[in-house]
Design a binder for these strands. Sequence first.
DNA 1: ATCGATTAAGAAAGCGCTTACAATAAGAGG
DNA 2: CCTCTTATTGTAAGCGCTTTCTTAATCGAT
Lengths: 337, 337
Amino acid sequence: MIKVKDIAKKCGVSTATVSKALHNSKELKEETIAYICKTAKDLGYIPNASARALKLKKSYSIGVLFVDKTGSGLQHEYFSSMLDSVKTEAESRGYDVTFISQNITNEDMSYLEHARYRNVDGVVIASVDFHDEQVIKLVNSEIPTVTIDYIYNCSTAIMSDNTNGLYDLVKYAASMGHKKIAFVHGETTDVTSKRLAGYYKAHQDLNLKVKQSYLITSDYHDPKGSGQATKKLLSEPVVPTCIIYPDDISLIGGMTALQQAGYKIPEDMSVIGYDGVNISRILRPIVTTYVQDSKELGRQAVIELVARIEQFSTFIPKVIYVSGKVQEGGTVAVPRS
Amino acid sequence: MIKVKDIAKKCGVSTATVSKALHNSKELKEETIAYICKTAKDLGYIPNASARALKLKKSYSIGVLFVDKTGSGLQHEYFSSMLDSVKTEAESRGYDVTFISQNITNEDMSYLEHARYRNVDGVVIASVDFHDEQVIKLVNSEIPTVTIDYIYNCSTAIMSDNTNGLYDLVKYAASMGHKKIAFVHGETTDVTSKRLAGYYKAHQDLNLKVKQSYLITSDYHDPKGSGQATKKLLSEPVVPTCIIYPDDISLIGGMTALQQAGYKIPEDMSVIGYDGVNISRILRPIVTTYVQDSKELGRQAVIELVARIEQFSTFIPKVIYVSGKVQEGGTVAVPRS
DNA sequence: ATCGATTAAGAAAGCGCTTACAATAAGAGG
DNA sequence: CCTCTTATTGTAAGCGCTTTCTTAATCGAT
């Protein structure tokens, strides 16, 4: 491997000069820089990231922390899409992406320790247990962090806009003529309460009243649970004309239950999902759902993180909402009655 | 940050001794080691990976190279599952995982240059254009590599066993009584020809003859294409009783076409997918498909890569086949006639 | 001619860690 | 009592890079 010293020797200058040349220092004569850079290129010089990181105490790499708790397909898809844009955005800014986890080396290392060990300049935190003590320690450390879909008050957060998501979906359903809109929502979490807020707000703005029996809890990504929830809704004295599910996977469970009960979709019942996973566009009819902009989430996370890393002025944690959009598929029709 | 020097001072020994103690060198007295290690722990010492990498010329990190050419959901799911196990396996062996890509820093860096820049000890290559000159350069470099689903003759390859996959599926279909088994296969690639080999072999072993008109090409992950292929099969003088699709997504396209043509699944037509994506277990009926063991692929890749990194003896490239298994769903029934 | 200002390049230290080698001390053997 | 092992710790160099501080050279101004 060619190193600075080799270039220096070849050019008959000192290593200091080479280093300056490679960084375009204006201390040097233009021609010197040009000459040295050309030589470096000719020799096939590649800088050594470890040496640089050691010297500068900056690694130009950011960590990504996520734990695949559920192992569910959706989490995966949502996350991997985000990860992809994190990677792309980070790289375009000269940062590499490394995973931060626990089990590095055999002794247990906490997330924070791992991050310090690898000298990452910052960490994007997504899809973890945000109440985990280790995560909290990391967020409160000297290492810049950005969280996705969770708000701490000492770290910038990038949020998918669940409130507006539900709001838009209800509005869309209403625009198709629906007034009896059920919402099978996920278990009690931050995300769920935000979506409920959107659901309520839309009803208020539309002058529709919310029927409590149309609000049913079912775990996220649980097609069985959503099937049961659906049956419960069908046994209501006044059956809703449209059901919003907590996610696209749950929607599939719901559709199966509806079909078993002899309902045709969308003629007899309109259904709406959430997330906009790939499969939603492949099924026929195409699923009407709310497409979360996972790419944009990742992008924003990196933008904010890098801003925080590279800016020396005081830092004020922000909360950024990234909105998605309604994917008009074929699972919603004008209601019968 | 606490460093070796701090521990040395605190313990009244030299940095050399501390370093040795932390590595459990047997040059040192047991008690010295114990004392120093305890002090290090008390002080909250975290070693500095950059410094270590610089000194040892070994970073204890491996690169992952993949390019999401298609952007298709399946690729994502398959890959992210693999990536997950790469990560887990690597970490359990003390290695971190970093992405290797092109656009690091603004000047273009090739994969190889990027890998050298970050001092990765090895690279797992998956889901890329294996004919890309840059990839070939990387594989032929001094950096150990392991490829997934492609064989170069200078690098170990981990292969999902496509031949056996198709073989097993045909056998399974036959065991259900099918004799007219169509195969909508993907475009001409390495993978496709391996699967075709399995298809032929199974027919031979079962004493069934292959009908050329039952073999139709349709791009991978293209539900539209597979729908058309399906229609073509339905217009055959002798319609097959079972159709194997190139993947689960294509299967969905095929099923849609079949349903439009008035076929009931599995009563009127048996269908089989490939891959075993998450959705295949959520749809009703559950899809009969061949589940690729993506976790095992990732695991094996790391095992082989680390073996190659840490072993100094001569290296002989291997090819390892990882087999999946038939997921018996509800899309295959005993044929009518 | 002398001096300070300016420009261009080099010397050297040091980031944190590991390790070959040196040094010391203690015990064994003659 | 001296030498030779053996056991244990220390010294110091150096991985490749950046950067502060010097130094040397050039130039215009007094």
